[in-house]
Design a binder for these strands. Sequence first.
DNA 1: TTAGATATTGATAATCATTATCAACTATAA
DNA 2: TTATAGTTGATAATGATTATCAATATCTAA
Lengths: 145, 145
Amino acid sequence: MNAKERFEKFVTRKGLRRTLQRERVLEVFLATERHVTVQELYDLVRKKHSGIGYATVARTVKLMCESGVCRQVDFGDGSHRFEHKHGHEHHDHLICLECGKFEEIYSPELEKIQDRLVRKYGYIQESHKLDVFGLCPRCSKKKRK
Amino acid sequence: MNAKERFEKFVTRKGLRRTLQRERVLEVFLATERHVTVQELYDLVRKKHSGIGYATVARTVKLMCESGVCRQVDFGDGSHRFEHKHGHEHHDHLICLECGKFEEIYSPELEKIQDRLVRKYGYIQESHKLDVFGLCPRCSKKKRK
DNA sequence: TTAGATATTGATAATCATTATCAACTATAA
DNA sequence: TTATAGTTGATAATGATTATCAATATCTAA
Ligand SMILES: [Mn+2]
Ligand SMILES: [Mn+2]
Ligand SMILES: [Zn+2]
Ligand SMILES: [Zn+2]
């Protein structure tokens, strides 16, 4: 099952309707590898399909998140961004405070310890979000000068 | 050095001025142990000092964060909350998706592995934020029924 | 202690993102 | 095909944050 199928299935299962607008928003979202805001996605959508409204894009982003195709990432600068989730391994983020660049990081060991910790508190983990802020190699070199 | 001294020192060092309003906002913030929004802090402040404006509270919160007295916590529900930082050990959060309750968690082991991971990418860590979402013991029991 | 330079304040307006509204339209099942 | 109910796009409403500005307070240097 690819992301498109997953979304369609979700929409149907929820008793919602498959529309051309939703399909187009999804396609444009899947076609970019950036972490986009709603406004940025709206701008991308408008380049190809000028009739689609902002509200529809925002509503579709919400659906894409619920369906598991998409997830929200916030890097602490106040803007809400969205990235692909379906077909992508879980990962956390390492963000440079100086230039804004980021890395997608992952460590099974880290995840394992997290799980243990959560279980110790009697919680059942649904998801988690780890953002590390600091300086990237390039910016830390610059700073040391 | 306590939180108050730290804040005053920060204000002075920055060439800013010590004012009664800033002192009062800080005092009210330090007197609560909750994770408050700006609006909630404003409401608390107004109970004691009716003349202080919303803008002043918001501006002071920003300064408190810069000074290290306070830090922002976002639990993914869109609201920005603030908690004590000075004199408090670093901790992460474990949030119940059902009832909104949360735990403050900490694991030296987890932190150590995080550090190693960050260094592997050549980054210098400044801070990090880990939020785990799931079900608290009570809510997971309810769900199983 | 005083005076002047400059930061601060509180009220309000502006801004920005998100959400609600609603009439026209359309997907879906019968 | 038709009836039902979800969807759309434009726009208004909302809510949070930030900018503006004249009055006021702080701080420093004389
Ligand atoms: Mn990512
Ligand atoms: Mn906390
Ligand atoms: Zn950098
Ligand atoms: Zn709970």
